[in-house]
């Protein structure tokens, strides 16, 4: 059993979570070219190493972020989306 630390509910069985995929930064729909829009839709982060991704704790319907190494499957940290806003 793998444990994921939910920023709100603490450490929980990973089966309680839903994976929502890597963070993608949406381009401005008005200004983006077709190529930029296609890249936004079809390309997702897949570099071997640490990536930032969305997760949802299903039971509490709480969506948050995790930094996880997709080679070793170790979670570096999990944090609230508010922090992402601060970083932008």
């Amino acid at each position: 059993m793998k444990i994921l630390r939910c920023p709100m509910n603490g450490p929980r069985n990973i089966q309680e979570f839903q994976y929502l995929g890597p963070v993608r930064h949406a381009p401005d729909p008005e200004a983006a070219s077709d190529a930029e829009w296609a890249a936004y839709i079809f390309h997702a982060e897949n570099r071997p190493g640490v990536i930032t991704e969305w997760w949802r704790h299903t039971a509490s319907n709480y969506v948050f972020l995790a930094e996880r190494n997709i080679v070793t499957n170790t979670v570096v940290r999990t944090f609230d989306a508010w922090e992402m806003e601060q970083m932008r």
Partner: peptide, 13 residues
Amino acid sequence: DPYQLYATRSTLD
């Protein structure tokens, strides 16, 4: 597996 990973291990679930 339900999430992205470069690994060839198995999981019990």
